[in-house]
Design a protein around this nucleic acid. Sequence first.
DNA 1: CTCGAAAATGAACATTGTTCAAGACGAATC
DNA 2: GATTCGTCTTGAACAATGTTCATTTTCGAG
Lengths: 206, 206
Amino acid sequence: MNIVQDESRRDRKKLQRRALLIEIARRYIASKGLISLRVRDVAEAAGCSIGSVYNEFGDFDGLILTVNRETVQALTARLKAIPAGDPLRQLHGLADAYLGFATEHANLLRALFEHRMEDDRPFPDDILAMVMDAFALMHAPLVRLLPDRDPDDVALLSRMMFSAVHGIISLGLEERMVAVPPEMLRERLAEFVDTHLAGLGVSRSA
Amino acid sequence: MNIVQDESRRDRKKLQRRALLIEIARRYIASKGLISLRVRDVAEAAGCSIGSVYNEFGDFDGLILTVNRETVQALTARLKAIPAGDPLRQLHGLADAYLGFATEHANLLRALFEHRMEDDRPFPDDILAMVMDAFALMHAPLVRLLPDRDPDDVALLSRMMFSAVHGIISLGLEERMVAVPPEMLRERLAEFVDTHLAGLGVSRSA
DNA sequence: CTCGAAAATGAACATTGTTCAAGACGAATC
DNA sequence: GATTCGTCTTGAACAATGTTCATTTTCGAG
């Protein structure tokens, strides 16, 4: 066998285990929160040693960040799947998709937003960029709805709206300090988007 | 000396040290985040033993929750100081006061919203009630601005607005993933409130 | 089959929340 | 002032958990 095949066989195994470790870590975070994630548990569940987890991810933060990276990728994929036809419908779709993702993966999303790096190490640029990308998805439909506004202004508006929606959803899904009852959240969120757009001068959706 | 005076003298000392411990813990959280809080550091800084911290607060969570309680009290006091004269001005004042508090005490506010209890112990009811009280402060001015709406509806609206403002501020002040540049935040937040009120049918502020 | 580099291992270590037996303290009583 | 007794304080020891690294194992190349 040639080198490429040998390496790819080895790599395949390595990648397979890496994926397993990530999946296990994700399950811990998703089911009991980031606080419940333990290196020993992950290693044991994957049937390997603690050291191997460190070989793969460098340190504990590395494992968390890897899961977070995949979380934001999944979120972005879901948001990008919203069709771009009618801008008003698209905005509602984006808000609703965000709510859906947050509902199904509350702990994963919390881990993304609440995780703090050890020591003051900088937050990884690539994750930051991916989050900004997700934020930016509101921009295009808003530009279409507000053609007369300065695009820079609309960029800020879209970030404001995204942040507002994020706040409504994240507080709404927090079981403690219930801001808005979850069962009403979907409907109310749509109403919120409509209201805000109306305030921006966009006539209410059909 | 009689019993009462003896006890109050002892109590005074105890309360004094309790206040010192809280103040030290608050300073750690405020300056480097909840993650930097350590029982040993607090005890050493207060010149007492680890065990005394446990006698005073039960456990680590108890210390954190005590600081959080005072944080939400300080926040509520600040929000309640906004005069109730003009409802529109009051709403702007509330949003601005929240932003001001969040700016000055970003880490304390984060500790309040992001702290998770150990084990799944329930979140303390009194803190929850205090946060709900703070949320409710938007209710009265909104009722005055929307006299024709069902009060229950307005209650939900006010929670939505509070959550939205919270999201804008908390993401805006997060240095990583900067949603809205902090220097613009104040102005933009006011604009956001105006826009949303306009969407609700309230004519823009004078 | 042998060799060597890379990977895996897990015991040992460092940090930090927690407990608790022993001691110190102080108020009431004589 | 001495005694007593309950309370508070102490800090060593423990437990949980992230981290390191010398040793062992693995596996492909020659």
